[in-house]
Amino acid sequence: MKEQLQALEQEALAKVEAASTLQELQDVRVAYLGKKGPITEVLRGMGKLSAEERPVIGELANTVRGNIANAIDEKKAGIEAEQLEKQLAEEQIDVTLPGRPVAVGGPHLLTSIVEEIEDLFIGLGFEIKEGPEVETDYYNFEALNLPKGHPARDMQDSFYITEELLLRTHTSPVQARTMNALEDKRPVKMICPGKVYRRDTDDATHSHQFTQIEGLYVDKNVRMSDLKGVLDRFAKQMFGEDREIRLRPSFFPFTEPSVEMDISCKVCNGKGCSVCKGTGWIEILGAGMVHPRVLEMAGYDPKEYSGFAFGMGPERIAMLKYGVDDIRHFYTNDLRFLKQYHQA
């Protein structure tokens, strides 16, 4: 019987080895390990054996069954792995084909610049104020120390609607409006971004509509060195920590002293190049200490309060920062332009 079992084992293992599909393997399992299989058959004849032989043969039979079952399981795992591999191979795609595009929009470059500046000044404790685009002559000029007939009105030829109404030529009127509106004459710390309009023929460097950001800080004991410190923070954050600023005298009717702020040229690092016209400096914005007449007209006592104000052009900043070469790009809304700055 022992030989019979060993022969059956050999035979079964050979068939397992030969099986190539899961079905053939299942057939081998049924044939050899099933209730009607030859091993069961052999064991049925155990009754004829002596009491000493019976456990020996019994054990051998179990071993044989175990070996065959193991061989089948092993073979099965192998076949399954092979089949999976084949299936995966069939499922292969060309990963170099393009994916389905996702519609992506984005903010206008001017919005990105304005929001960046807003966030910077919010961090310094400023609020954001807004004002009307159609202004009264009073707020656009007179409240800013530009009485009728003032020569400085020449600098900004304007779009008038009536004698008393015009499209604002700067965002500065929001200064006066904000201060006027505060009944308790408390300190003011605000910036105001917005659209402004001037009588200019549109070309590469002029636009009849453009953007401005006005800033105002009025409190007791505001010093010009505070203006310098705040503008330095602004310049470094917008243009890089390695930029230097300088102030130089200028003139605005609503500030005294008045200055222009330049930053050191990024292209040549201040040595002088074509971008900075050889001076090493690039003009960024105008600023100054609020003129006492402006404070007075807005109901603030200039003996008690002082302040600084500044105004800048986001278009100019964008042009410097990104090398935009024509201001009209900001208003034609060419998607080839807009999309360049959707990540900016």
Binding site: I122, L124, F126, P187, D226, K228, L247
Partner: peptide, 16 residues
């Protein structure tokens, strides 16, 4: 103007 110091506003802070 180069000789002016850099300072930051010393007035009361408000939350911007």
């Amino acid at each position: 103007y180069d000789n002016l110091p850099f300072t930051l506003p010393q007035g009361g802070t408000q939350a911007g």
